[in-house]
Write a protein that binds this DNA or RNA. Structure first.
Lengths: 167, 167
DNA sequence: AATCAGTTCCCGTATGAAACCTGCTTCGAT
DNA sequence: ATCGAAGCAGGTTTCATACGGGAACTGATT
């Protein structure tokens, strides 16, 4: 399965329409079971927490994986209620139009404080949408945090295959 | 199967009529085995506990799943009696009219203290109906609770595929 | 039979979103 | 450097939906 990769800057017009990076479309098409050549794929936009100033976009197959995990929790449990609120209530389907664009509603634009530009960030099985300056700041924060780790205790060290863990 | 997603605010008129979000109708149609194009799907409204100031709406297939789970409990057991009371007694069928609206009876409106507006909340396989301010308060509570979790003990950590749990 | 409350059906209308169309820019191949 | 295709962006039109008003129907009561 193809993955979302790279960063890409696009204009947002007065109606909130914005082009999805062309490479991302290919990933969305692959991940939409209902997609047929000639039609347009859809995706799901999640705007989790107010504190997080970005949207997260999922392909259909990718959000289904998440939903299936939630469905395994007991119905009516508090954990499940919280997750449904975070993932289902705070989200929406988005149809991609014939020109490869999606519409960010006014509400969504205000949420992430976007005016006339948006930057798309590939994150593997999902992508993020940021206001460009907010993204730059977030990336600086990430780099700062990363540099605080020492050699021994570093996220990269979590990248051990199961094989090498057993050894 | 499509899922209920997003939040949507609608007017409630003096007769108690309120539009169901257009996207929710598609989910109800998919979930109603008796639905045929041109007709209107129905749904089930549950008003569980007095303390919970919202209604929960299910598609037919979705409420069937819940009923099946209840049916697995021993007949005449106390647990089953309680659940039947919660889920069956405190609920009603609701027909959607030609304009995609349903009627909230006066009793239901009083129960959730709705006056002239209602907000619909997608919760995956069901949806909720709240008085808008009550919902805002509930959502603040959810976010507050969510922020109390630390990094290690967080509902999102329950979303691990079986594979990685085994490792 | 007459009244009344509650409900369903059938409209008209306004708003906002989706579809359509059309240029401009970028990029890759020749 | 030139050409063609694809990506991007913008404006206009069309249509679906939300929402309210009013007429017709129900059936319960006196």
């Amino acid at each position: 399965m193809r993955r979302f990769r790279g960063e890409s800057l696009h204009k947002v017009d007065v109606k909130g329409r914005v082009s999805i990076p062309a490479q991302f479309r290919r990933v969305l098409e692959e991940g939409d079971p209902d997609f047929k050549s000639g039609l347009n794929p859809s995706c799901v936009l999640v705007h989790n927490q107010k504190s997080k100033k970005c949207l997260e976009g999922y392909s259909i197959s990718s959000i289904n994986e998440v939903d299936d995990l939630v469905s395994r929790l007991p119905r009516y449990s508090r954990d499940r209620e919280i997750l449904e609120r975070m993932l289902n209530a705070q989200s929406s389907y988005a149809q991609i139009d014939d020109n490869g664009r999606l519409v960010l509603s006014l509400k969504l634009r205000q949420r992430i404080e976007i005016e006339s530009e948006a930057i798309f960030i590939g994150m593997g099985d999902k992508f993020q949408v940021w206001e460009p300056n907010a993204y730059r700041r977030d990336m600086e924060q990430i780099e700062y945090e990363f540099n605080l780790y020492d050699e021994k205790d570093n996220p990269f060290n979590l990248l051990q295959s199961k094989h090498s863990l057993d050894a």
